[in-house]
Write a protein that binds this DNA or RNA. Structure first.
Lengths: 211, 211
DNA sequence: GCACTTGTTGTACGAACGTCCAACAAGCAA
DNA sequence: TTGCTTGTTGGACGTTCGTACAACAAGTGC
């Protein structure tokens, strides 16, 4: 992105102002931030990179958010919301059979819209921020606790004994995260369908033995 | 870390030069880099932060490595080596029973020296670099392929059918990674011992059904 | 057309970045 | 003690960072 330093600022005729509603602008900045986090990682994510990705001027980040950290936090909320909605939708379509519901909930993570390498990469970037940013850590804790609680409920509906619920939920959550990680970082190793099969196998083991 | 800008440079009497052998100095910079990556994440890891952590002057990073990226790559190699050695040691102590060996190999990830929150946090930082840095991606691919290959061998020794080896190895690797992630990011949720129990349960499922 | 509201641009600014290197200094041998 | 080798310091330099904001401009109502 070289800037020809001898080139004068754009004339009035050359500047292109494109107005957008505040919510729409905020949303497009959030999406741009997610994409930059995914592609460049945390180290390559800057106000200028996000603005360039969004096709706007850098000042807009400061105008619409209390700074880049606030934008990243808003991006976390957006991505998390997208994942939650996909899980909700999977459950809504799963019917009432407990095993089908459990499987739908877990395997939704390996289908669109979740199993998108870009979304997974953004998610990995968020993981890497948890320890250094208390705000992201809070968001992370809430989201994970909610996911695990829900998973426990679904597992309980499948007859997993109460004494084993917690560990089963932790294990399934870990398996999903680990498969996400490798789906994203080593896409040549296996794909989303295989990940779903692996997860199904694990669920079958857990629910068949009540282990 | 405010620097009193009116304070003159240290006089000759105040400067403290401490010499170290090149290898020792390189190693201490690598360890400092690992600690900073763990604590501050990628975004907070800079030449100055690492040098401060190592108790030396920033110029030493450039003296001993071809820049901060080379130092990070060297840090990856060091941490990976530390993990591999721990796994080797666990296997060496496990005896000849295939099931004991498999369990030792997998649960070693949940014992010292591996299950150290700082090491895990450094590892998460490396994950977040994989997509944006080809060199780290190469290191990552090699390390993961080697781990999975080894795991497949151990699983095969336990009688897991050849047709199921690959997926079993992928699943166990994912489970380990996911448990690492949460051990590090949500230490209040569960501990290393419980992680080991969860992993043992998963291994028992895989090896008992030959699934 | 004008005035006002409100969204946009792009740059100034101080701070921090990675890299480079001259000056310094520890340690050793003669 | 001197000279040499080699490790260390810390600051210069150009670049990039996040933030702030003056100037600009789109869009609306009168």
């Amino acid at each position: 992105m070289p800037q020809v330093s001898t080139k004068p600022a754009l004339t009035r005729a050359e500047r292109a102002y494109t107005r957008a509603e505040p919510d729409a602008r905020r949303h497009s900045l959030i999406l741009a931030c997610a994409r930059v986090l995914a592609r460049e990682g945390v180290g390559g994510t800057s106000v200028r990179a996000i603005a360039l990705e969004a096709g706007v001027s850098p000042g807009l980040v400061g105008h619409y958010f209390a700074g880049i950290d606030a934008l990243v936090a808003a991006t976390y909320a957006e991505v998390e919301s997208r994942v939650s909605e996909a899980l909700d939708a999977a459950l809504a379509q799963a019917g009432s059979d407990p095993h089908a519901r459990l499987e739908a909930f877990v395997t939704a993570s390996f289908r669109a819209p979740i199993a998108d390498p870009e979304l997974l990469a953004t998610w990995i970037a968020f993981w890497s921020l948890v320890r250094a940013r208390p705000g992201i850590a809070r968001q992370h804790d809430e989201q994970y606790a909610a996911f695990r609680l829900r998973l426990e409920q679904l597992l309980a509906d499948c007859g997993v004994p109460a004494a084993r619920l917690r560990r089963a939920a932790i294990g399934v959550t870990a398996l999903v995260d680990g498969l996400w990680l490798e789906l994203c970082l080593s896409p040549q190793a296996f794909g989303a369908q295989e990940a779903a099969e692996i997860a199904r196998g694990a669920l079958a083991g857990i629910t068949s033995t009540g282990r």
